[in-house]
């Protein structure tokens, strides 16, 4: 499983998500988390059709299985990826 976090430095909700994503990584070392700065990697953002950030895309075997846009608490991020703590 992979979680891609599309963000930018100028985006407020993305800033709010930084500690949440860090907490997620700590709690779920089995999931690969990739944070993509859309200003540096425009092609990737375009490839995934990102039209609003923060945007979280979940991949399973390289295929997109879930996606959600906007700031959300850890609980919701875990639900999106389909993992639970503990």
């Amino acid at each position: 499983m992979e979680l891609i976090d599309f963000y930018a430095d100028w985006c407020g909700p993305c800033q709010m998500m930084k500690p949440v994503v860090e907490e997620f990584e700590k709690a779920h070392p089995e999931i690969t988390v990739k944070s993509i700065n859309i200003d540096d990697e425009e092609e990737l953002a375009e490839k995934y059709g990102v039209s609003s950030i923060p945007c979280f895309v979940v991949l399973k075997d390289g295929e997109e299985v879930a996606r959600e846009v906007g700031a959300m608490p850890l609980k919701k991020l875990e639900k999106l990826v389909g993992v639970k703590r503990g």
Binding site: W10, G12, P13, Q15, M16, A71, M72, P73
Partner: peptide, 28 residues
């Protein structure tokens, strides 16, 4: 809280009228 602490102000980059913290971002 249903979504994220801070509410509607988290989108704003430069707040100029919050006393004591000139140009603070809504997220901060």
């Amino acid at each position: 809280e249903s979504t994220m602490q801070g509410g509607q102000i988290i989108n704003t980059i430069n707040i100029e009228n919050w006393p004591g913290d000139f140009k603070v971002s809504g997220a901060e």
